[in-house]
């Protein structure tokens, strides 16, 4: 199924969705959003691309096998917990630093790394399943 309308729209929507996904991801700290929601939007972007252009090109675009992405996600999440242990706290106790960038104070901590892990797991899982199902049809 090749649709010119869908393909043209996807070319415009795909980068927007990705930016939106990252925006939601970072926004999650103070406003609705976060790794899970951001991950779902990110996955949706790639799914849209796959529907419009096929999974083969989308896999190349993604660069990483979605199954491997799930593994990295779990690794990052675990890493954030281990970092807390290294600092002498118990597993998954948030560790924070406050760098000042362009005059404003940033809050950077291990929950961010954890959330990156969640993001990757969600994207990886969704794409692994949907790609596999789509390829099944052909």
């Amino acid at each position: 199924m090749k649709s010119v309308i869908l393909q043209t729209a996807t070319r415009l929507l795909f980068p927007l969705l990705l930016i939106f996904s990252v925006f939601l991801f970072f926004r999650g700290h103070n406003e609705p959003g976060g790794g899970f929601i951001g991950g779902l939007v990110g996955a949706a972007a790639f799914v849209l691309f796959a529907v419009a252009f096929g999974t083969e090109i989308t896999r190349k675009l993604l660069r990483m096998d979605p199954r491997v992405m799930v593994g990295w996600g779990l690794f990052f999440a675990l890493l954030s917990g281990i970092m807390s242990m290294m600092a002498g706290d118990s597993f998954f106790t948030g560790q924070w630093v406050f760098p000042i960038l362009f005059g404003s104070e940033l809050h950077v901590g291990t929950p961010l790394i954890f959330d990156i892990g969640v993001y990757l797991v969600v994207v990886g899982f969704t794409l692994a399943v949907i790609f596999a199902l789509e390829e099944e049809d052909n």
């Binding site: 700290h29 103070n30 406003e31 959003g33 976060g34 998954f92 809050h107 901590g109 929950p111 959330d115």
Partner: peptide, 12 residues
């Protein structure tokens, strides 16, 4: 250090 309680509960 997060105002979104839902997300803070989830990740911290």
């Amino acid at each position: 250090y997060g105002r979104n309680i839902v997300n803070v509960i989830l990740v911290d």
